[in-house]
Write a protein that binds this DNA or RNA. Structure first.
Lengths: 201, 201
DNA sequence: CCTACCGATCGGTAGG
DNA sequence: CCTACCGATCGGTAGG
């Protein structure tokens, strides 16, 4: 009887990815060794090479999975449509984005810091994914206000995603400002500035 | 006659730091080797150890110098005072910050991505410097609007610095949007949102 | 799925 | 006795 892929193959693989993401987020990709990843999830180094051909493949999988999930969440929000108050729609987008990236903070940190360690091919694929996310954010901004040039939405989308990604790196949910208050604040600050007439010329 | 420190000691040292910053910004700190830094500036690896005791000291010097210069520039702007139109004062701050970080883009990228490779002691010193920069930005925001709680200025300062730092990573001066237009846009977007009454509650 | 290793390369230092 | 600098090589560890 030929050997088949173990039932828990995917399960183990995602456990490795979780441990690796946590490690990379602390020490950086280049500062983490394969055997450290193994120790962190109770697997031998050789075993890791059963799931991943190269060290870079671990990184690529973390990044791709993270952005894919972000796209999924944001996409669902876009598909649902405005359906009522525009500001509320925007605020809920901010909430969805920051919740998604916050729940996977380790992966998010790695996505911020370690993209450069991907091979050119892996990087190309990753950048493509990130553009899809940017386009979704552009779509949301277009819902907020129609009539300007495309370039303008792109720049605004960049500014927004920059602010959100940065926030994720330092915002502490256990801190002084509650998550809900924070979503409200950041949404209002950005949207007010974005909607103001002079801001788009 | 006793030998003294060479006349061009500081000059050579800053040349090394420039080359290292460029290298780190492309390959990351952990992905760059000491001998690569040497090759990049025409100096032997052993020579590098005349100027820096450890590899980490190269990184620490790059980061400290970069943030110190940012502080210097922003501090001068704060000292100059508003002197007229408030929006103009804010826009000029954005210009100063993005010009300073843009002229030293390599160092800025390294400051964004590689702080984690500092030793705990070096990191502590670096974080202290960065707090000083944040306080300066808080001071500017306070000039724009008085009367709110301290926490609020801090969060807004974080949002602003996040947007500015992020921008530096992708903004292409040779691109479609001119630097002047861009400073104007980002300033107006942020300040409008920041000054709006609801945004600060 | 482990132990035993490899080719190479790392940061850092020797003698002169 | 200091600083400036080289070719060679150290002990230890990386990915595989």
């Amino acid at each position: 009887m030929p050997r088949v892929r173990a039932d828990d193959y995917d399960d183990k693989k995602s456990k490795i990815l979780d441990a690796a993401a946590k490690l990379f987020s602390k020490q950086g990709y280049a500062g983490s060794r394969m055997d450290e990843i193994g120790t962190a999830c109770g697997v031998s180094k050789s075993m890791l090479y059963h799931y991943f051909k190269k060290k870079e493949d671990v990184l690529a999988d973390i990044l791709q999975e993270h952005v894919s999930r972000l796209i999924e969440s944001v996409s669902a929000h876009v598909d649902a449509g405005v359906n009522g108050n525009k500001f509320d729609y925007f605020r809920r987008f901010v909430e969805v984005y920051l919740n998604r990236s916050g729940n996977a903070r380790a992966s998010h940190v790695v996505a911020m810091y370690d993209v450069r360690y991907l091979t050119p091919q892996q990087r190309k694929k990753q950048v493509k994914l990130e553009w899809r996310l940017l386009e979704l954010i552009e779509a949301i901004l277009k819902e907020m206000k129609a009539g300007d040039s495309r370039t303008d939405y792109r720049v605004s989308a960049f500014l927004l995603i920059g602010m959100l990604n940065w926030v994720e790196l330092w915002y502490d949910e256990s801190g002084q400002i509650s998550a809900a208050k924070f979503y409200e604040k950041i949404s209002r600050l950005f949207l007010t500035g974005f909607l103001e007439r002079g801001a788009t010329t």
